[in-house]
Amino acid sequence: MTIHRVIRKVQRFEGWFGGGAVLCLVAGLYLGLIGSPPDYYQGEVVRIMYIHVPLAHTSLLGYTVLAVGSLWYLWKRDPIVDNMCQAVAALSAVFTALALGTGMIWGKPTWDTWWTWDARLTSFTVLLLILIGYLMLRTFVDDPEKEARYGAILAIVGFVDLPIIHFSVEWWRTLHQPQSISMRGVSISSGLLVPLLFMSVGMSLLFSYMLMVRTQLLYLDRLLHAKKGRLLSQFHLSKFDS
């Protein structure tokens, strides 16, 4: 149960993650909204990037965590890893939905449409559907062991599918601008890049913090129910013996 110990150790620094997230986000928001100049081409609307891009990145990060956690669960069958998977799936779904929402708001002034079946929009929608399917699947199983196992299977298959979905819709249609930060260099000037970096780091920290809180929540929930269930059985037994 080494993972248990690691999780407990990381949980101790929970407050640091939360505080760091707030600091980075405040700095990022100040720079993004006030301190940075508008873009030469998109004007002020470019500021939506500072919230949209970090949300999208973080949800992908969350999906990776989900897949790794699911593999780990299938290997070690540690229930707290499953709690983490369930937590990260719910959070990823929220972040994906918000990334789509802010993206739609960005699309209206730049592409003049709320929604278009563009590649990245489509693949993010599919990602959201998979995550919602995952969460739904978990509510339809009675046995917590089966629930965790089936969830892990879906998460792994979905994760393997993700690059294929990405490429297929990318070839199918694409309108979204390419990534600005890639292996080939950065094409954002520094005045616009700094707030983006702050927001990205802040959002990742916020995600980690929320993940810790939610994992804790699910773990405590399980603990409480387990204890209650045990008490219930005890109650039946004592009634029977008397």
Binding site: T122, V126, L129, I130, G133, M136, L137, F140, V141, D142, K146, Y150, I153, L154, V157, G158, D161, I164, I165, F167, S168, V169, W172
Partner: peptide
């Protein structure tokens, strides 16, 4: 997988269709 859970008739397409998006497009 879905045959062993509740609401199986609903869950099969819900889980399957997003995953076969590449097959459908191609």
């Amino acid at each position: 997988l879905t045959v062993q859970i509740r609401a199986r008739e609903v869950m099969l397409p819900i889980l399957l269709l997003p995953l076969v998006v590449p097959v459908m497009i191609a």
